[in-house]
């Protein structure tokens, strides 16, 4: 505060009336968000108290979720969340970057505008629609073609065991991938289009082909923005509830086979909050707390990484 005083105090004469009201009302609006986050956390910690006291840290490593015996552990759902998110990112990120490169570097102008709009539109489709589409269109394709094929190809690995049923972690991962593609693709495209033309010219003038120019001048310059886009997508995949609940099969167990049904933290809560009470409700809220912590950790990690990448890039290079 002290450092800025000189200039500020000269620019700001004493304020009265409307000015003060304005300042305090916008400050109030800003403070409200802080208070909201605080209340949210306090309430969740408070309501999950019973479960926290009963299971301690064992809650995170407990593999059983049994309302009959009143024993609850979150590991299968943490596992399910990480696994489906992993599938989504593995499939979604390369596709999204491909879409972004095409839109930003190769597409003719008459196609770029409409195509970009369509990609952005996909991000606005409600997730229950994706869920319905997955159940009635994607699932038959998965059961009849994709999963049998993968099983015949990779059936010897632990990842593709059991009979294809279509409602499983693999289907959930794919629908998640489809849902995060619009976000990653459109934010990455913005980051790539923000790369100055002079960078592309630099690469071209050294004898770079179009592919090399994209790699050398565009992708590397825009990498912090692209990374940020991926984290945005990751964040959506971690917390996505509706479409996953509809496709994952809802089995409270840990299984490495992608063809087995599973459960994520979000889908567990969505499936059970209605009839849960007592310790189970408390345990569900603790799962919510863990989900919140994972989402927070993803965000903090993303910010740290983006900060590290940004070091060498001029201020305009971010696009985040």
């Amino acid at each position: 505060m002290a450092k800025r005083k000189g200039l500020r105090s000269r620019r700001r004469p004493p304020r009265f009336g409307g000015d003060l009201v304005f300042e305090y009302s916008v400050m109030g609006a800003a403070t409200l968000t802080l208070a909201l986050v605080w209340l949210l956390v306090v309430r969740m910690v408070f309501d999950s108290q019973a479960s926290i006291e009963r299971f301690g840290f064992g809650f995170l490593s407990g593999g059983v979720w049994d309302p009959n015996r009143d024993v609850y552990g979150a590991l299968p759902f943490i596992f399910g969340t990480l696994l489906t998110t992993g599938i989504a990112v593995l499939i979604g990120v390369p596709l999204s970057i491909g879409i972004a490169v095409y839109l930003s570097e190769l597409a003719p102008p008459w196609l770029r505008g409409p195509l970009s709009s369509v990609v952005e539109l996909l991000a606005a489709v409600p997730s229950v629609i994706y869920g319905l589409w997955a159940m009635y269109t994607l699932r038959p394709v998965m059961v009849n073609s994709v999963e049998p094929f993968l099983k015949s190809l990779l059936g010897w690995t632990p990842l593709f065991q059991g009979d294809p049923v279509g409602l499983d972690k693999f289907t959930a991962g794919i629908i998640l991938a489809i849902m995060i593609i619009p976000t990653i693709a459109s934010v990455s495209k913005e980051a790539m289009m923000a790369v100055p033309e002079s960078q592309r010219e630099a690469a071209l003038s050294l004898g770079a082909t179009r592919y090399e120019t994209t790699r050398m001048a565009v992708l590397s310059y825009a990498r912090s923005g692209i990374f940020g886009a991926c984290i945005l997508g990751l964040g959506r995949a971690v917390g996505e509830t509706m479409a996953v609940t509809m496709t994952i099969g809802n089995a409270n167990k840990i299984s490495w086979s992608l063809l087995d049904p599973g459960q994520t933290m979000a889908s567990l809560i969505a499936n059970n909050w209605g009839e849960a009470q007592g310790l189970q409700l408390s345990a569900l809220i603790e799962v919510g707390l863990v989900l919140f912590a994972v989402a927070l950790a993803v965000n903090i990690f993303a910010r740290l990484m983006v900060g590290r990448f940004m070091k060498n890039i001029p201020a305009t290079g971010g696009g985040l």
């Binding site: 100055p196 002079s198 960078q199 010219e201 630099a202 690469a203 003038s205 050398m216 001048a217 590397s220 310059y221 990498r223 060498n312 890039i313 001029p314 290079g317």
Partner: peptide
């Protein structure tokens, strides 16, 4: 070719 504005690769 060398351009009007210096354009080294920043990364």
């Amino acid at each position: 070719m060398v351009f009007q504005k210096p354009n080294p690769f920043p990364t």
